[in-house]
Amino acid sequence: MTTALTVRTEELSVRFAGAPALDRLDLRLAPGKIHGLLGRNGSGKSTLAATLAGFRRPDEGRVLIEGGDLGTAQEPYENAVVTSRVCLIRESGDLVEAVPVKQAISLAAALRPYWDADVAGALLDRFEIPLNKKIQKLSRGKKSALGVVLGLAARAPLTIFDESYLGMDVPSRNLFYDALLADYTEVPRTILLSTHLVSEVSALLEEVVILDNGRLVTQSPVDALRGRGASIVGPAAAVDEFTAGFAVLAEERLGGTKSATILGDLDPALLGQATAAGLEVGPVGLQDLFVHLTAPTGARS
């Protein structure tokens, strides 16, 4: 039985003091997949995560969550039926700091309809989180790890991790990635991982949403983005002629030589054409593509 939820946003806008944090966003998160939410700091990732989880009311447009045992589409804001099935873990933790870890665990167990105590116990052991310590006494790394445990053990049909693992060191983050994949394999659900650690996380993802300045840059299967960028290097005039029909993400010039990063699929005919024009064609990695797609300025179209 799958309980994974589908998420849609329609013309979703959120403004802070008049300035748009999210700007008429239309996207759809397919059920049962691991989605990445990528963007630079301030791109609107956390605002989107909070709005999807019903923590924040949209200023315009709406969020619709449907599927699983939820049936028809519903908006999450002030809707307990939806929010009990959605788990958002933020780096801040949203936890009562003055209580011991075990109390936070029993509170989550009481509130979360799909809570799995065995998963929680095993993960608390693996991350070596002391049960009797007050949360405010935990290190930043252990606090982040506690958030991860709460997020995974909740087994919510829509689970959102908003940079919640940034406080963890590399071995702990690897533990998180392993635990996430193992538990997702056992109970497939819709997962959204917001991050700017693109190269570290990208292999875990099936789909990516890239935000920039509150707008959707692209939504795509992540494997389709790998290899979609190309760098074209050669005599400036030839580069300009060849790249005229493509979205050019970045350009650099050194004397008469020019290097352009383009977005687009190069079929063998085009590759032959480039080689015949004396151009060098190279692949562009996902991390570089992400940097170009969200660059503060640039010649992108």
């Binding site: 392993d178 994949l181 394999t185 292999a203 875990l204 993802l205 099936e206």
Partner: peptide
């Protein structure tokens, strides 16, 4: 595919593909 995904720390759907 699930063993492969866990071993190499990649998405199971990618391994399956």
């Amino acid at each position: 595919t699930n063993q492969y995904a866990a071993f190499y720390r990649i998405n199971p759907a990618t391994a399956a593909k």
